[in-house]
Design a protein around this nucleic acid. Structure first.
Lengths: 140, 140
DNA sequence: CAGTATCCCAGCAGATACTG
DNA sequence: CAGTATCTGCTGGGATACTG
C-alpha cells in the first residue's frame, strides 16, 4: 500500500557527494519534507512564538504580526499533524486552548536557531550580493 | 534610504525567549529570509546537486528529476542573486556554463545537512504522527 | 475564546515553442 | 548547449462573516 512512497536509489539528498549519473528526487528528500512544512509562510513564526512556553490561540494571533485567523489555524493544524506542536483544550468557559512545542518541535527549533545565526552572520553579505546582481542587470 | 528595512523592536525571531507582549514580524526575521529562498520548491535540489562540485545546466536538468527548464533557470538565478551559487561561462562553442556553490553556499549547505540528519532521525516519528492525526480525524 | 466556512485573487509553477 | 518567451492552471493565502 501507500503508493506514493518513492525512493530514488536510496538517495537521501544531503549529504552524499552525489556521483556522476546520480539523480535526486524531490519526493525522496528528507530535508524537503521538513522544509515543505517549515517553509510555509507562517510556520516558523508559530514555532518561535510557542518556543517560550504554552501559548493560546489569541495570544498567537496578537503576537504574530500580519497573520490571518485562517492561516494561523491552518498552520497550527499542520504543525500539530506532524507532531511538532501539541494542542491542549482546557474545558472551561470560555474555552482555553494552549499550544506548545513537543519534544520533536523543541529539537527542530534548535536547528532553526542555528540557521538563524547563520542567516544573521551573512545577512549583509547576501543583501550586498542582491544589490550587486540587480545593479548588474539594470546596467545591461 | 532602503525604505523596506523593517525591524520590530530588535526582534530577530530566534532565539530570544519572547517575553509576553512581544510581537514577531515575518519581515524582520533572519530565518525567514533564508527559508524564503531555500524553501522554494527546487532550491535545495540545486544546492545539493552543486555541492559535489561545478555542474553544468544540462547536467542539473538530468540530475534533478521532474524539474522543468524554466524552473531550473529561475532557481539558479535566485540562488545566484543571493550569492549562494556562482555562474561561470566558458566562451567555447558550444557554450559551457558551470554552476558551483560559493563559500556562503557551502556553509549553508552544511547547516542544511544538519537539518537533514534531524529529518532522517525523526522521519518515522513524523510519519506516525501524521497517520495518527489523520486516523483521529477520520474517526470523528 | 477559538475556531470554521466562503469567496476570491496573485503568483508560483508546469508545458511548450522558440533562439543565440 | 543554455537558455528566454508565452500561455495557463492551481493553490497558497488574504479578508471577512459566522458559530459552539
Amino acid at each position: 500500500m501507500e503508493e506514493g512512497t518513492f525512493l530514488s536509489r536510496g538517495n537521501t539528498c544531503v549529504p552524499g557527494p552525489l556521483k556522476p549519473g546520480d539523480t535526486v528526487e524531490r519526493g525522496a528528500c528528507a530535508v524537503t519534507e521538513v522544509l515543505d512544512r517549515v517553509g510555509s509562510k507562517w510556520s516558523i513564526m508559530v514555532i518561535v512564538s510557542a518556543a517560550a512556553g504554552p501559548i493560546r490561540f489569541t495570544e498567537l494571533e496578537r503576537t504574530i504580526t500580519g497573520i490571518s485567523r485562517r492561516m494561523l489555524t491552518l498552520t497550527l493544524r499542520n504543525l500539530e499533524r506532524d507532531g511538532l506542536i501539541s494542542r491542549t483544550v482546557h474545558p472551561t468557559a470560555p474555552p482555553k486552548v494552549e499550544y506548545a512545542l513537543t519534544e520533536v518541535g523543541v529539537e527542530l527549533n534548535e536547528y532553526l536557531a542555528q540557521l538563524t545565526r547563520w542567516a544573521e552572520r551573512h545577512r549583509t553579505t547576501i543583501h550586498q550580493a542582491r544589490s550587486a546582481y540587480d545593479a548588474a542587470r539594470a546596467a545591461r
